[in-house]
Design a protein around this nucleic acid. Structure first.
Lengths: 216, 216
DNA sequence: GTCTATAGTCCGATAGAC
DNA sequence: GTCTATCGGACTATAGAC
């Protein structure tokens, strides 16, 4: 075999390996997100994740060295998704427009990544053992920065006075509620956020109440 | 031993047994609530619960026949606590007063029973496998009844028009958020709802925003 | 990269002495 | 009622063949 051939072969092999690797890692991450969302870290089993990913358990552990490592990878990816809408919030000109957009994005995220939202919720309810370092630094800093945006609007007399951080918490929880508590909502309304009409209704009502309350 | 003595002894024994039984069952329920809150049903272990209840595992299983039976007992008790504030909501005369009272009660519940709230959240996030039958019947009926109260106020022109059920969901999630997501809130604010000043601030802001929005 | 086999641990639940 | 001992099964992770 000539060197050029060997090189080509090696490159091809490497490319193919990376492609398979990427596909398998994605399959595992998706399966893991589903199982962690349903049962939390301790309740989830590698058997279940491997089975959902159409893979043997040792093969799964070839890609992620441990259950803990897999969980941290999943959480890392979710953190970026979770924070993305907030990063876009800025003073702009119209608070109503800016906040409506932010709330819309958060609700859309709940609809598109309901399992990610549940993994997040499980992690926080369990005391945020893994996310804590990230929340105490990056999230806290982002919240402080975005709270300043709200207080700017208050000084300009564009919105009334309230605690900016509590308002952000309320946006987060009302929007994520439709992902995390979908089972409860389905029991009462027989509808899911996946339903197009219901989705529009959620967006309308959440924005209406958070921005204007119920007395106007 | 005379019959009267035997009867007295028997009664005494029975009374003592029931008293010990009541104490131990309470100890177990409290320990179980704590562990189920933290790890969910599958993640919780009887070892941990027994240890927290200062009891051996077989002794725990003497009082509750299985992990599942224990979990159902805990959930049953939580369901009654959870629904209690909503049952009190009625037309009355002043919507602001009625709803303020309801929100206050829900926040107070989050403060007094944070572990119960977390067990509830875990159960719902996991698809409500145990609570489902109760939510589909009792909770759904209660929600429909209480939605009618809100719509009465709308007809009377006392409050603006919105979807009553979504408003109830928003009250639930914003109030329970301070129990369920306490770890996240602590990371950002370094405070808990247990803190008296923070507690007052939560009540003020949640009521302000849910009832009046941010533009007045 | 993927498999079978298995080590080593922990789980829920039971048996049986006291 | 409470204990020790233990069963059978499920768990994470590794060893080693292919």
């Amino acid at each position: 075999m000539l060197p050029t051939d060997r090189d080509a072969q090696a490159l091809d092999n490497k490319a193919k390996k990376t492609r398979i690797q990427a596909i398998n890692e994605k399959k595992i991450m998706e399966a893991a997100t589903e199982v962690f969302a349903h049962y939390g870290y301790r309740g989830a089993t590698l058997d279940q994740i491997a089975s959902k990913a159409d893979m043997s358990k040792p093969n799964l552990l070839y890609y992620f060295n441990s259950k803990d490592a897999l969980y941290r990878h999943v959480l890392r990816r979710i953190y970026d998704i979770w924070l993305e809408p907030l990063r876009g919030l800025d003073v702009g000109q119209d608070p109503e427009k800016e906040l409506s957009h932010y709330i819309d994005q958060k609700i859309e995220h709940s609809r598109r990544y309901p399992l990610a939202s549940k993994v997040w919720a499980n992690e926080i309810i369990g005391g945020a053992p893994v996310l804590k370092p990230l929340l105490e630094t990056d999230l806290q800093a982002t919240v402080k920065r975005k709270s300043r945006v709200l207080r700017t609007w208050m000084r300009q007399g564009k919105i009334s006075r309230f605690d900016a951080e509590h308002f952000l918490f309320m946006i987060w929880t009302t929007t994520q509620h439709y992902a995390d508590f979908s089972a409860q909502i389905a029991c009462v309304t027989h509808k899911t956020i996946e339903d197009e009409r219901f989705y529009m209704q959620v967006k309308k009502n959440v924005k209406k109440i958070l921005l204007h309350g119920i007395f106007e």
